[in-house]
Write a protein that binds this DNA or RNA. Structure first.
Lengths: 317, 317
DNA sequence: CTGAAAGCGCTTACAG
DNA sequence: CTGAAAGCGCTTACAG
């Protein structure tokens, strides 16, 4: 591995000047810079991230905090974490997964995900003194999130454009921000629509069985929907089961749409038309954000990024 | 953060002696060691991994190689990687995910997974000059793997102990080691069993649809099995679909067992009795192994670890 | 059994 | 616009 010294020796400049070409090139005379840059390219020199971190008093460690009450191997978070890990690795940072509240330990920055609302105040406070990002949304803290609103707005418009007019929304019975956003997406889409719509709202816990029961009961009544727009894939699978059990067919009698796109949509029968969330990309965005914060010494304006979703077209709609 | 110097100052010994207490304690007089250890504890001193890596000429980077033809977000590998990541992070190493063949770049060690048989020779060669571990099995290279043999042996014995005597084995139609191991587990279990057994073997590609077709055709014939022991969960789900489509019920008419336990077992109806593979643990074992290799300067005897599986009891058997 | 010196590869003031 | 000096926190020979 080539070092600064090698480049310095080869070009006749000092190590300091070479360092400057890398870190603050505008402080170097253009001609000098060109010579040094050529030599850097020739020797394929890459700065040693360890030495840099050492001298800059950094640890090169990023804590990623996932509350202990969330499954360690929850596939959703696993995808995000692996997106984070990819970028962090490239940049010479270590990712350290934490399952209990991070307080005052030794790291360059923290990424939080799956925060409860009580945690949010703590995270905000911490963000004042240390680079912090959240997956989700906390007022005043840089964040990356899936655009849940846009997702269900998109799906609902798609449903309407396919001619469906009797819609049931199967929502999640929990006071969480992403859940409200999804419902808002649905509501705004139907409100934008002119002409008569028949709407119905059902709520259940976010799992298959709960959805199965709620939908099963609702289908007993004779206000049969043409489509059930679900707030999650697990619920959509429960809805499909309930529909089939009535001797009805999906999507012929009742269509169903999901939200998540993490794999189970392929296992359902029929396969689920759903919203795909690019959570791996979200992880990468989080990593880039935390690195930018670190390099700016936590002096960047708060930035909320919402990542757009897309529809995964399958057979349930 | 306390440093070696702080401990040295507080105890009156030199930085070198403190360093020795941490790295080669047997070279330090017992009394000295006790004093220094007490001070280390009192100040909660942790060596700076960056400084150590710098002086030892390491990068603190571990490459994890997953061939590009495997889905980047394949949940199986994701679990392994996150197990690796947990341990590596704790130890101050960075994990760098590679999707193309690693050759001669700058890292302290490599972990390979999902290797094709052509790659194995390259990996073996590399392991002679650099710390290398594989997930799976390569002759002469340290490895960690799921005990596929033990898994299907365990499941088949369980099936037999439940009184089933007409078994169909639904195997995977591909020449891979883990596939042979699973089948061997099945074969050894049935061979150990005294008394009359009716056996049948079916093969398909490792996906739901292929299994669905093969099982569907086979059930037309009148040699109906009591149970289908499948080599994967995806295939088991296909088998269940085929069985149900004949108007039969699982497990009443035909029972089904799977192998993988990565989540889809819960989505199936009935939920799948299957083999759970502790792949997160496998990841952790890989990380510990590669670190040990690095610290021994690649001078450890080759070690193959096989991690035991367990049965996940659900309703399909 | 313990320590003084040199150095890993880099950056940060300070000088000129 | 460029460089000499000092130092980040640690380990590695070498000496005693």
């Amino acid at each position: 591995m080539a070092t600064l010294k090698d480049i310095a020796k080869a070009t006749g400049f000092s190590v300091i000047t070479v360092s400057r070409v890398i870190n603050t090139p505008h402080l170097v005379k253009e001609k000098t810079r060109a010579i040094i840059e050529a030599e850097i390219a020739r020797q394929n020199f890459k700065p040693n991230v360890l030495a840099r971190a050492l001298v800059q008093n950094r640890t090169n460690i990023i804590y990623v905090y996932i509350p202990a009450d969330i499954d360690a191997i929850n596939p959703f978070f696993l995808h995000v974490v692996s997106g984070i890990g990819e970028v962090l690795g490239e940049q010479g940072f270590s990712l350290l997964l934490k399952r209990t509240w991070y307080n005052n330990e030794d790291c360059d920055g923290c990424i939080f995900m799956g925060l409860s609302s009580e945690d949010e105040a703590k995270v905000f406070a911490l963000s004042q003194i240390k680079p912090v990002c959240v997956f989700g949304f906390v007022e005043g803290v840089s964040s990356v999130d899936i655009d849940n609103y846009q997702g269900l707005f998109l799906m609902t418009n798609h449903v309407l454009s396919r001619g469906y007019r009797k819609l049931t929304y199967l929502g999640i019975d929990e006071p969480r921000r992403f859940i409200r956003q999804r419902e808002k997406g649905f509501n705004d889409a139907v409100m934008n629509k002119s002409g008569e719509l028949t709407l119905n709202y059902l709520y259940a816990k976010n799992n298959e069985n709960a959805a199965y029961k709620v939908v099963g009961n609702s289908l007993k009544q004779d206000k049969m929907p043409e489509v059930i727009v679900c707030a999650s894939d697990d619920m959509a699978i429960g809805a499909i089961r309930a529909i089939k059990e009535k001797g009805l067919e999906v999507p012929r009698d009742v269509a169903v749409t999901g939200f998540d796109g993490l794999g189970t949509q392929e296992v359902a029968h029929p396969r689920l038309t759903t919203i795909h969330q690019p959570i791996y990309e979200a992880g990468k965005a989080l990593a880039h954000r935390i690195i930018a914060l670190i390099e700016s010494k936590n002096n960047l304006p708060t930035n909320h990024t919402f990542i757009e979703t897309t529809i995964l077209h399958r057979e349930s709609l």
